[in-house]
Design a protein around this nucleic acid. Structure first.
Lengths: 333, 333
DNA sequence: TTGTACGCGTTATCAT
DNA sequence: ATGATAACGCGTACAA
């Protein structure tokens, strides 16, 4: 790897002139510019980004830390982050957290050691509190998405999970359902609790009593929800509607219901959450009604918020809350 | 962000001593070490990674550039890369190529501007040739996975797609099928052609003539394959076995067949390729027989190969070829 | 237009 | 044990 000094020497000029050529700045005679360009070309020279960032105190880089890269739930979020970064000329760096808090912590450190202008972290797992607090504690530009440690002055992008769950439940109620159950996500996540609360509140507001089977605990994948629903049905329980905390488990519910011979939405209406459904599945199952979480927009907003914080260091930490939108497909009226 | 100089000044020592403390090196009196540690703690100081990398000429970072982060096909590869990097103390940085060659090119440049010790690139799209050649041209440590520009001395991790396709086809033949068709992937990818060639060769070796419908062109998603299979069946064609170039389109084939009332594998045997099937799908469809592509192992090998190249700069470029493995589930005997 | 000199934050060498 | 100094590769006032 050639350096700027070697280029300068070979072109018989000072490093200053080479630097000017590299950065398209004036103050170089046409002849020198020409010669310098030739030498650069000849050596396939590219300036060292580290040295440049060091002197400029600017990396034009944003680091992104998430629970796990390997989850299609994040596709829209990643795309939103990437697009927004691109738009502003920033390089977006992603790392694979592998659902392991130590790995994520390591990357947060890595990113904050001068290698990025700011970081964006996603997660609402309660064990992440520590991670988020440590991020917030470092004097680093950052935005937390879905992660909301209380009493922390950090930029946040949140979804109103309570309201979303309330809306979904209310819709089922207004459609005339009375035996409505809620299948929760993993309770280690704040969002799961918020959605549960939204369900409970709606049921309460409409004076529908909760029974012992009204709340069924599962996680954010298909398997457990499938088993739980199957159990319920074999036990003879007959819910006529089901609000599920996420889309993947909602498919588990649908599968159990269909296998049990129920018609959808006639015998059982279903509303999911997230709208992270791969298109291909739409053809296997009836289209899933769900609360769409605007992850793409949230990603974009996250980058904007981060850049705004970089531009205005004295601005107070800000929280932006997004609303989920009811998407009606085939699984409820 | 404090600097090492500020820490040194506040502790009334030289930067040298602070540096020694930071790097756990001897040559510091216990009292000074204690005092320095206190000041570091107080200011929440972390050394600047850029400056450190600049002087050490070592970033302990590997950059990964792929077609697109947002494809579950890559999950195993990503995990393999991450695990291997982790194992050797390297930081793995992923970027979202968005299936756009310019974006990927940009990140290759970014990574090669001194910010990484090497890069790993994935892809076999023929339009990527340019990208791969430019990577190979830069005097950069790199490994290409699935990307194989001819006449380029680069480290490569390849899959023997021809042999895999041959094996799959041969298995169908030996099971007694004669009316075997192949549904291809997108022909812009080298792997698609290699798999097609493997199919053709096997058919040829066993003296099974190819008819006009023996080869059906589709892509690596479900939709087109579904439509093609549906068309075939409505046209009255009756293949008794189908080798599909990837798993996702194989599901499309299965769906079309099941909708048409065919039994699997009785009326139609199916073998896919990749084994990137989400577990959840196993329960909806019959388990898909497929050629397992060892992406996790390939990712690990890619990192090992890269690190070996870094350790031995004079070593010749090396190519490692992996074999796909026939996984028999329910869709063929 | 051109070049000198300094600084970015760190580590390593070599005196003391 | 300690610290001054050079070096990593670059950008930029400032002076010429």
């Amino acid at each position: 790897m050639a350096t700027i000094s070697e280029i300068a020497k070979e072109a018989n000029v000072s490093r200053t002139l080479v630097s000017r050529v590299l950065n398209n700045k004036p103050g170089v005679s046409p002849e020198n510019r020409q010669k310098i360009l030739e030498v650069i070309e000849k050596h396939n020279y590219v300036p060292n980004g580290l040295a440049r960032a060091l002197v400029l105190q600017k990396t034009m880089t944003i680091g992104v830390v998430m629970d796990d890269l390997c989850n299609d739930f994040f596709f829209d979020l990643i795309t939103g982050l990437q697009d927004a970064g691109e738009e502003h000329g920033y390089n977006m760096l992603f790392c694979s957290g592998r659902n392991d808090i130590h790995t994520r912590m390591k990357y947060v450190d890595y990113f904050t050691q001068g290698r990025t202008d700011g970081i964006i972290a996603y997660g609402s797992n309660r064990q992440d509190e520590e991670l988020f607090r440590s991020i917030a504690a470092k004097s680093v530009n950052c935005v937390l998405i879905e992660g909301s440690p209380d009493n922390c002055k950090v930029n946040k992008i949140l979804l109103d999970n309570f309201r979303g769950a309330y809306t979904a439940t209310e819709h089922l109620i207004k459609q005339g359902h009375h035996n409505i159950i809620h299948i929760t996500n993993d309770m280690n996540y704040d969002v799961s609790l918020e959605r549960l609360n939204g369900f409970v509140q709606a049921m309460h507001d409409y004076r529908i009593p909760l029974g012992p089977d009204s709340i069924v605990y599962a996680d954010c994948f298909e398997q457990v929800a499938y088993q739980q629903m199957k159990r319920l049905l074999t036990e003879g329980k007959k819910p006529d509607a089901c609000f599920v905390g996420a889309d993947k488990p909602a498919y588990g519910v649908l599968r159990a219901a269909i296998e049990a011979g129920l018609t959808i939405p006639g015998d059982l209406a279903v509303i999911g959450f997230d709208d992270d459904t791969p298109v291909s599945r739409d053809m296997i199952f009836p289209g899933l009604s769900t609360m769409r979480q605007p992850l793409y927009e949230m990603g974009k907003a996250g980058v904007e918020l981060l850049l705004d914080g970089i531009a205005h260091p004295e601005r107070e930490a800000e929280t932006q809350t997004f609303e989920a939108e009811l998407i009606l497909r085939d699984t409820c009226r």
